[in-house]
Design a protein around this nucleic acid. Structure first.
Length: 490
RNA sequence: GCCCCCAUCGUCUAGCGGCCUAGGACACCGGCCUUUCAAGCCGGCAGCACGGAUUCGAAUUCCGUUGGGGGCACCA
C-alpha cells in the first residue's frame, strides 16, 4: 500500500450529475476528495455525470461549478479547464462506452436484451412479492446468437446487459475495511440502454479506468453500486480503483437531508451569508475530528485530514454548530475583509463611515452576513415617529432636554470614542450614573433598548442625524404629555 | 420483503483491553463582565442501546437482539 502510493500519483474525482444545485452532502464528498488529493499532492478531477440526458441541464452544471469554486475547491482537470483525460462530460464520451460495451459483448461478459420495460416491471414486482431481490431472469441470455443478430438487424431496440460472474463482490474499502456483497444480490444490470446511452454504473467504471482514478471517495449509498462496478472493472481486465465510502449526512429528524430541513444546498448557505471557510470547516468536522482543534482553515484541513479517521456512522446536520463555526471564522477574519463582505450586504447608498462603524461594531458578534442589513437598519433607520413617542415616554424628559442642551459639548470631538468619553465626563460631573446616562441616549438615537455599543452608533450616524433624532424624541415626549390617554409620567 | 452499512451526552466526536469516576465542542442552564442585547470569559447539566460470550479486567473483542441509515430502475 505504501509502495503503491509512492509510485502512483493519487487521482480522485468528483462526479456530480447536473440535475440540480450542489447539495451540502455532495459538497462534503467533493471536499473529502479535494482534501485527499491536495494532501497527497495528487490530482482532483471534476467530471460531469450527465448520462441522464433529460434531467441534466447546463445551468446546473454551471451553478455546481460556481459553488465548488466558492468553497475553494478548485479542480485540476474538468470540462472547463481541460486535461489529458478529457472530455470530462459523460455525454461527450458516449462512443467510448459503446466501444467498451462491444468489447465486453465480444468477450462474452455481456449480452443483448430485448425485454420490454413492462415485462421488467412485472418481473420486479413478482420478485419483491416473493420476498427476493429483484433480479433480471436472464431470459435474453438464452437467445441464440442467430436470433439476436436477426432481431438486431431488423432494427429492434436492445439494451446491453452485463453478465454478472455469479460470485461475491469483495470491496476493500479504505474507511470500512472489507465489505462483501453476496452474488445473489447482484443481477445482470443494464450497461447500455436501448437508446444507446450508457447507464451510470457502466459509464462510471469506464471513465474511472480511462481517467486513471486511483481512489473513488463517495457516499456509502454507493456501496452496492460498487459491488457491480468492481466486477465490471474486472471483466474489462482492469484493476479497480481503491474505494472509500463515507457516511451520509442526515437531517435533524434522522431522515435524509432534504428541502424540508431548510437550507440544504451550498447556494442556500452562500445566500444566508455563511463564509465558505466555515462551511468547509463544518463539513470536515462532520464525521471527522482532530484533537481539540475545531476551527480549522482549508490549509490546516489539507495538512491534517485523513480518510482513515472518518467516522463510520451517519451524522446529523446541526445548523447551530455551523453557526458557531461561522461566528468563529467571522471573528478571525481580517477586519478589512470582514468590512468588505459586510458592506456587500448593505444598500449601496449606505455612507462609508456608517459601513465602517457598523462592520466594526458587529464583527465580534455576527453569526451570518445575512443579518447585516437588519442589524444596520436598526441603527441607520430613523426611529418611527410613534417609536420616538414611546421612547420619549420611557425617557426621563428632564434628562433628554439636558442631553440636547449639552449637545454642543458632546458632539464636538471627531472620534466617536472621544465623543462618548466626553459625554460620560459630562455626566460624571453631574453625578449621573452610566446606565441613566447612556440608556436614554441609546433610545433617543435608535428607538430601541438593544443594539451595538454606543460609540459605534455615534460613529455610524452623522452629526445632523444625531441631533434630529434627539429633537424628535423630545418633541415626541411633549406630544405624549399632552395626550391624556398616554399618561406620561410627571 | 431481501441485501449492505452503522450504533459513546440532544448533536458532532475522543476513546482503539487496564491511564475512564468516559474527555472535548455545539446546544441548553447558571455566573462574571457590561449602558442594553449579543459576543467573550468561567462553571454546570447530560452519554457507552440491550442481552449473552471471551478475559484477572471491557465503551473498547466476538455473537445475537433492538434501533437507525442506505440500496434493490433502460436515475445518478
Amino acid at each position: 500500500m505504501e509502495a503503491i502510493s509512492l509510485n502512483s500519483k493519487v487521482r480522485v474525482r468528483f462526479a456530480p450529475s447536473p440535475t440540480g444545485t450542489l447539495h451540502i452532502g455532495s459538497a462534503r464528498t467533493a471536499l473529502y476528495n479535494w482534501l485527499y488529493a491536495r494532501h497527497h499532492g495528487g490530482a482532483f478531477v471534476l467530471r460531469i455525470d450527465d448520462t441522464d440526458l433529460v434531467r441534466s441541464e447546463d445551468r446546473h452544471e454551471k451553478s455546481i461549478m460556481a459553488d465548488l469554486r466558492w468553497l475553494g475547491l478548485e479542480w485540476d482537470e474538468g470540462p472547463d479547464v481541460g486535461g489529458r483525460h478529457g472530455p470530462y462530460r459523460q455525454s461527450e464520451r458516449l462512443e467510448r462506452y459503446r466501444e467498451a460495451a462491444a468489447a465486453l459483448l465480444e468477450a462474452g461478459h455481456a449480452y443483448h436484451c430485448f425485454c420490454s420495460e413492462e415485462r421488467l416491471a412485472s418481473l420486479r414486482a413478482s420478485a419483491l412479492a416473493a420476498g427476493g431481490a429483484p433480479r433480471y431472469d436472464r431470459r435474453c441470455l438464452a437467445l441464440s446468437p442467430a436470433e439476436v443478430a436477426r432481431r438486431l438487424a431488423s432494427g429492434e431496440a436492445a439494451a446491453v446487459r452485463f453478465k454478472v460472474p455469479g460470485r461475491d463482490a469483495v470491496i476493500d474499502d479504505v474507511v470500512r475495511g472489507q465489505v462483501a456483497v453476496g452474488a445473489a444480490a447482484i443481477g445482470d444490470f443494464i450497461m447500455i440502454r436501448s437508446d444507446g446511452v450508457a447507464s451510470y454504473n457502466f459509464a462510471t467504471v469506464v471513465d474511472d479506468l480511462d481517467m486513471e482514478i486511483t481512489h473513488v471517495i463517495r457516499g456509502d449509498d454507493h456501496l452496492t453500486n460498487t459491488a457491480w462496478q468492481v466486477q465490471i472493472a474486472e471483466a474489462l481486465g482492469a484493476e479497480p480503483p481503491r474505494f472509500a465510502h463515507h457516511s451520509m449526512v442526515l437531517g435533524a429528524d434522522g431522515g435524509k437531508l432534504s428541502k424540508r430541513h431548510g437550507a440544504t444546498s451550498v447556494g442556500d448557505f452562500r445566500k444566508l451569508g455563511y463564509l465558505p471557510a466555515a462551511v468547509v470547516n463544518y463539513l470536515a468536522l462532520l464525521s471527522w475530528s482532530h484533537g481539540d482543534d475545531e476551527v480549522l482553515g482549508l490549509g490546516r484541513l489539507v495538512e491534517e485530514f485523513e480518510l482513515e479517521r472518518l467516522s463510520l456512522s451517519p451524522s446529523i446536520f446541526d445548523r447551530a454548530k455551523l453557526d458557531w463555526l461561522n461566528h468563529e471564522h467571522v471573528m478571525g477574519l481580517d477586519p478589512r475583509e470582514h468590512e468588505r463582505i459586510f458592506a456587500s450586504r448593505l444598500p449601496a447608498e449606505t455612507p462609508p463611515p456608517a459601513v465602517a462603524a457598523l462592520a466594526a461594531a458587529f464583527q465580534p458578534s455576527l453569526v451570518v452576513y445575512g443579518e447585516a442589513p437588519a442589524l444596520a437598519a436598526g441603527v441607520l433607520e430613523e426611529p418611527a415617529p410613534d417609536r420616538a413617542r414611546v421612547a420619549g415616554a420611557q425617557l426621563q424628559l428632564q434628562e433628554a432636554r439636558r442631553l440636547r442642551a449639552a449637545a454642543g459639548d458632546w458632539l464636538s470631538p471627531v472620534v466617536a470614542r472621544d465623543l462618548l468619553a466626553a459625554y460620560r465626563v459630562w455626566g460624571k460631573e453631574r453625578g449621573i450614573r452610566a446606565r441613566e446616562l447612556l440608556m436614554p441616549l441609546r433610545i433617543a438615537l435608535t428607538g430601541v433598548e438593544h443594539g451595538p455599543e454606543l460609540p459605534f452608533v455615534l460613529a455610524a450616524l452623522s452629526r445632523s442625524q444625531t441631533l434630529r433624532r434627539l429633537d424628535a424624541v423630545i418633541a415626541g415626549a411633549h406630544t405624549g404629555a399632552s395626550n391624556p390617554t398616554q399618561g406620561d409620567a410627571p
